[in-house]
Simulated scan of single mutants.
Amino acid sequence: MERRAALKGLATAIGGLVVLPSWASNWNHTTLQPTDLLSAEETPLLASVVDTIIPKTDTPGAKELGVDRFIQLMIKDCYDSKAQETLKKGLATVEEDSKETFGKSFTACNAAQRIHILEGMGLSDDATSKGFFTMVKGLTIQGYMSSEYVMTNITKYEMIPARWNGCVPVNQ
């Protein structure tokens, strides 16, 4: 190996280790910037879908933790335009199914009606509906589990788990 390549690799590794703590820090709903991915009508609809997937119990729900903004940010920054269109078409389908089935908007439905609509999308033969539900459900779980509240209050997140304690008494 050449010395320049070795030094370049070493510098990259050290830089990565210096930046890692700031990159891997927990997010919360105040750190997420609003995106222009969804319209003003679609944003509360996504929040209702997220709230249906992980509702509020004795712990905050996904909507309360701002997971809907996390999903918008992830899809805008990390997914291709096809996934962005799937999100928009899926939200339109949710609204249409709600109006056809129950005669009212998805946000106005009760919890059982919302679950019925989302379960129907998950079991649908339509690739767009099923893709939407799978994508939003996965991102909801990811966003909820990596939120600051869950990481600090529920899972007791440790940046470097499995400490090594060298001074442990050994019994014979």
Score class of each variant (00 low, 15 high):
residue 1 M to C: 07
residue 1 M to T: 08
residue 1 M to I: 13
residue 7 L to Y: 09
residue 7 L to C: 07
residue 8 K to D: 09
residue 8 K to L: 15
residue 10 L to N: 03
residue 11 A to I: 07
residue 12 T to K: 09
residue 12 T to Y: 06
residue 12 T to S: 14
residue 12 T to M: 13
residue 14 I to D: 01
residue 14 I to L: 11
residue 15 G to D: 01
residue 17 L to S: 04
residue 18 V to S: 09
residue 19 V to P: 02
residue 20 L to P: 01
residue 21 P to Q: 06
residue 22 S to R: 07
residue 22 S to N: 06
residue 23 W to V: 15
residue 23 W to Q: 12
residue 23 W to C: 08
residue 27 W to S: 03
residue 28 N to M: 05
residue 30 T to P: 00
residue 32 L to K: 04
residue 33 Q to C: 11
residue 33 Q to Y: 13
residue 34 P to A: 13
residue 35 T to N: 04
residue 36 D to S: 15
residue 37 L to F: 06
residue 37 L to A: 06
residue 39 S to V: 08
residue 39 S to R: 05
residue 40 A to V: 15
residue 40 A to N: 15
residue 44 P to Y: 04
residue 44 P to I: 11
residue 46 L to R: 03
residue 49 V to Q: 00
residue 50 V to G: 01
residue 53 I to Y: 00
residue 54 I to G: 00
residue 55 P to D: 09
residue 57 T to M: 13
residue 57 T to E: 15
residue 58 D to W: 14
residue 59 T to V: 14
residue 60 P to M: 15
residue 62 A to T: 01
residue 63 K to S: 15
residue 64 E to G: 05
residue 65 L to I: 07
residue 68 D to C: 02
residue 69 R to A: 14
residue 69 R to I: 01
residue 71 I to W: 00
residue 72 Q to D: 08
residue 74 M to P: 00
residue 75 I to R: 01
residue 75 I to N: 01
residue 77 D to S: 14
residue 77 D to V: 06
residue 78 C to Q: 11
residue 79 Y to Q: 13
residue 80 D to M: 06
residue 80 D to F: 12
residue 82 K to E: 04
residue 84 Q to P: 02
residue 86 T to S: 14
residue 86 T to A: 07
residue 89 K to S: 11
residue 89 K to M: 10
residue 89 K to C: 04
residue 91 L to T: 00
residue 92 A to T: 13
residue 93 T to Y: 08
residue 93 T to V: 07
residue 94 V to T: 05
residue 94 V to L: 04
residue 95 E to A: 12
residue 95 E to P: 03
residue 96 E to V: 12
residue 97 D to Q: 12
residue 101 T to M: 08
residue 102 F to A: 01
residue 104 K to S: 08
residue 104 K to L: 11
residue 104 K to T: 15
residue 104 K to Q: 14
residue 107 T to W: 03
residue 108 A to R: 13
residue 109 C to V: 03
residue 109 C to N: 11
residue 110 N to F: 05
residue 110 N to S: 04
residue 111 A to N: 12
residue 112 A to H: 06
residue 112 A to R: 10
residue 116 H to K: 10
residue 122 G to M: 10
residue 125 D to L: 07
residue 126 D to L: 08
residue 128 T to Q: 12
residue 128 T to A: 12
residue 129 S to H: 02
residue 129 S to Q: 10
residue 131 G to L: 05
residue 132 F to D: 02
residue 136 V to F: 00
residue 137 K to I: 02
residue 138 G to V: 05
residue 138 G to K: 03
residue 139 L to S: 00
residue 141 I to C: 11
residue 142 Q to V: 12
residue 144 Y to I: 04
residue 145 M to S: 11
residue 146 S to R: 03
residue 146 S to V: 02
residue 147 S to Y: 00
residue 147 S to A: 09
residue 148 E to P: 01
residue 149 Y to E: 02
residue 149 Y to S: 02
residue 149 Y to G: 01
residue 150 V to G: 00
residue 151 M to E: 14
residue 152 T to W: 04
residue 154 I to L: 15
residue 155 T to P: 05
residue 156 K to Q: 12
residue 157 Y to R: 11
residue 157 Y to S: 05
residue 158 E to A: 14
residue 162 A to W: 07
residue 162 A to I: 11
residue 163 R to Q: 09
residue 164 W to M: 08
residue 164 W to T: 14
residue 165 N to T: 08
residue 166 G to V: 06
residue 167 C to K: 12
residue 168 V to G: 04
residue 169 P to E: 06
residue 169 P to N: 08
residue 169 P to K: 13
residue 170 V to D: 06
residue 170 V to Q: 12
